[in-house]
């Protein structure tokens, strides 16, 4: 067989390169700890306290906030791609179809506890989202927890009878709102710094104003961008809120699509 010879040759090449790559990677990582330096982490730790207590959130949403924008958008891209894979209309069918196997499998205890637990997870997720600048957490973990709550009810009660009845359109709207909060907060920083300073900075933290560019407090509307909280973290919680909405909607949508598609076999 010609194809199997070809396959075999390819396997041998793949195996040899795999062995070489494994050797190089393992050896490099074995030596790696001798070369480590604090680098920029030291600088971030040095200055982050000016903005919010949680250094990692400050890096994620302030120093490298633009990366986080990209991160938000890769989730949106994945959601849209999943939509394209299955087709926009593939979720319409579930209202007509009976999906008995889901509800029959779940026991009484599951059915009794799933909904309260889901509400608990939602509330817990919101707490994580809103506490991102003080304690470990933020928009991504919080949104993931909320989506877990939604998915729990879907697994126990089925997509048709679930008490948390998110529709496709609603989730798309939520993720649009979340992403727009992030994007437009950045544009607002750009516009405000251009207006007061002549040159603009995208995603400038207008609420904290660490470089004293727009003189927070001198004008009434500036204070709107400072989150009402004793730590005064500026725009970070707003970005967290937007990301949280986006992530909960995105992950729920992906889960919905993967769940529906499985039944279509």
């Amino acid at each position: 067989m010609k194809t199997s010879d070809y396959q075999q040759g390819r396997n041998i090449i793949a195996g040899v390169s795999l062995v070489i790559a494994s050797f190089v990677i393992l050896r490099t990582l074995f030596q790696f700890s001798d070369y480590l330096i604090p680098g920029m982490s030291y600088l971030y730790n040095l200055y982050s306290g000016n903005i919010a207590p949680n250094v990692i959130t400050v890096i994620l949403f302030d120093f490298r906030g633009y990366d986080t924008l990209g991160e938000t958008f890769i989730l949106i891209t994945a959601v849209i791609t999943t939509t394209i894979v299955f087709g926009w209309g593939s979720l319409k069918g579930y209202k007509k179809k009976e999906t008995p196997e889901m509800t029959e499998k779940s026991t009484v205890i599951q059915r009794l506890m799933a909904f309260p637990l889901a509400i608990f997870l939602v509330a817990f997720g919101v707490t994580i989202v809103l506490g991102g600048h003080i304690s470990p957490g933020g928009g991504f973990p919080g949104g993931a927890v909320i989506a877990t709550g939604y998915f729990l009810t879907v697994v126990i009660y089925g997509l048709k009878k679930t008490p948390l009845r998110f529709t496709h359109r609603y989730l798309v709207n939520l993720s649009t709102i979340g992403a727009l909060i992030f994007l437009l907060t950045g544009v607002l920083g750009l516009v405000a710094t251009t207006y007061y300073y002549g040159t603009g900075y995208y995603l400038y933290n207008t609420g904290v104003d660490p470089y004293d560019i727009i003189h927070v407090g001198a004008f009434g509307w500036d204070n709107l961008l400072d989150y009402p909280d004793p730590t005064h973290p500026g725009i970070l919680p707003y970005l967290n809120i937007g990301v949280g909405l986006n992530v909960l909607a995105g992950l729920s949508l992906i889960a919905m699509f993967l769940m529906e598609a499985r039944k279509d076999e």
Binding site: V126, T127, V129, L130, G131, Y227, P228, D229, P230, P237, I241, G244
Partner: peptide
């Protein structure tokens, strides 16, 4: 001065 979490918790 903590009406932020309350307000946005309600919104969510």
């Amino acid at each position: 001065n903590q009406w932020g979490p309350i307000l946005f918790g309600l919104v969510y």
